[in-house]
Amino acid sequence: MAFTPPKETYSGTVYPLTIGTGDKAVTIGGENVLSFHSFEGQTPFKPVIAYEIQDVPPSDWPESVRKPYDSVSDDPVKWAQFCQDTLKAKALALRLVGTHPDRENRSPEEAAKTVSDILSAVDIPLIILGSNHVEKDAPVLVAASEAAKDKNCVIGKAQEANYKTIAAAAMANNHKLIAMSELDINLSKQLNILLTQMGFEKERLITDPMCSALGYGLEYTYSVMERIRLAALTQNDVTMQPPMLGDVGMYVWKVKESQAPESDLPEWGATEERGIAWEAQTGASLLIAGSELLIMRHPRAVEAVEKLIEELT
């Protein structure tokens, strides 16, 4: 019996999306097949990993992932330069956690200043994230969008409760936008529709179906991503065709497995290696499920996943 490779052809394509400006701009998406299925279609652009940095020192990060940034993380600008110049980051994700009312409660103006300072110090693409406080994120991200006008950044995250203000600011200042909903393909579709109805171009969106860490709901994110991607490709559903984000580091570095000391749990092995593997495997799984943009923290985890991307493309 002869073997005929059962290849698939799909009717839909993921939108290609470019972030940043100049030589260092990067493009993701653009494929008309499932992740890394280059044997049956086009995969013009590779997924990209952005290094996560913060506007305030990472006092809440576990030691293994705080350590690599010890000498720079007291200053977001130094931290951004270190990622760009020393770690050769392809993109940065600035999380403005310091604006959260339960944290330093920084003002939108302070956040805007941090954004401007970073943008004048580095030239790789920048993702600008709020503190995930639905009310506070709106003014913070408006100010940040203005400070970054025309730099083609990614602004996030717009959620059902606050998308209008944030999307309007991203639109007015020529940015891309992350639309986040909570692990539900229908909610994700609905939010994308709401955004396009208010005039935001669907080709400028990134879908975040919400991340979860290995061992803590990863299978939900994995399957929601696969389903979104299948809807985009096989049903040519235009509301499901933006590239997808996996916001990996934030979820991984709070679970027990990424930080419990080996002395407490000898059967779990070396703490630092375990945390790095946890982050790298979570990221790798989500790439396979369909995401083309990851936000990660540990340099060794990023390096390993980048090497995997090279081998997969």
């Binding site: 290995l214 994995y222 497995e257 000898p266 059967e267 779990w268 092995g269 070396a270 703490t271 290696e273 375990r274 593997a277 946890w278 790298a280 495997q281 790798a284 799984s285 396979i288 499920a289 390993a304 996943v305 090497k307 995997l308 997969l312």
Partner: peptide, 27 residues
């Protein structure tokens, strides 16, 4: 461990690995 991730998610029934570090096993 990342190649094994590809295998676990994409249909392998047996994966042959070179080492058994505990951190890698747990992940």
């Amino acid at each position: 461990s990342l190649l094994a991730t590809v295998g676990v998610t994409k249909y392998a029934s047996i994966l042959v690995l070179s080492s058994v570090e505990k951190w890698k096993n747990l992940a």
